[in-house]
Design a protein around this nucleic acid. Structure first.
Lengths: 103, 103
DNA sequence: TTAATAAGTGAGCAAGTGTTCACATATTAA
DNA sequence: TTAATATGTGAACACTTGCTCACTTATTAA
């Protein structure tokens, strides 16, 4: 008599969850995301200063975050102000920080 | 007059957050984690059947999850029963699934 | 128009990752 | 002891990833 195994979440759902975590699973990108929810909105130059990597590297990571719909921007003159696309991301990251602090 | 930029979370904290997300950011590992919180406890063979990758691949990923303190096991005879090490992980994953379902 | 500022792109490359293959260990049954 | 079952390990390899370098685009100022 073998127990029936539960398998409620679809392959596709779990793949999307993995994709989401993978995007947040990089030091540069999580620093950018953290800087954005702490400051609300930042131009690329401010992000570069806070995150301490090169302009080019920041640009590449901003593109990835934008493609995955985690951030968006508002254009003002020649500057772009980036912000989080969805408040849930902040909740998930803060919950994780709390979880890890009880390590 | 430039605004002061907030930078409250330490480099180290954010690095650990990235590490945590990186571990969950793989399809095989997130499937294992999901299978474990759905079923409470599973032996390797059951995990292999639920997750649909080879025994060897599952073993390697179980080791990574164990090293990162996301899972533990209980030994019974020649079998090992794996389970989540901390309920917070389930909360974070479920919250993420909810977040993505409102995509 | 020309120069300066803000931001982005694409190729190249070193480093990292997940799987497979062959082999190893541990426990139980014959 | 021998065989069978359950699980783990390490090297090899293809694939992915994040950075840097050189160059480009867009906007504003001179």
């Amino acid at each position: 008599m073998s127990k029936v195994l539960k398998n409620d979440h679809t392959e596709e759902t779990l793949f999307e969850v993995a994709e989401f975590f993978k995007v947040l699973g990089d030091p540069t990108r999580i620093k950018i995301v953290s800087a954005l929810f702490e400051n609300g909105e930042l131009c690329v130059n401010d992000i570069v200063n806070l995150v301490d990597v090169t302009r080019t590297a920041v640009s590449h990571q901003l593109r990835i975050l934008k493609d995955k719909r985690i951030i968006s921007y508002r254009k003002e003159g020649q500057m772009k102000f980036y912000h989080l696309d969805d408040a849930h991301v902040e909740v998930i990251v803060l919950l994780t920080i709390t979880h890890l602090s009880h390590h």
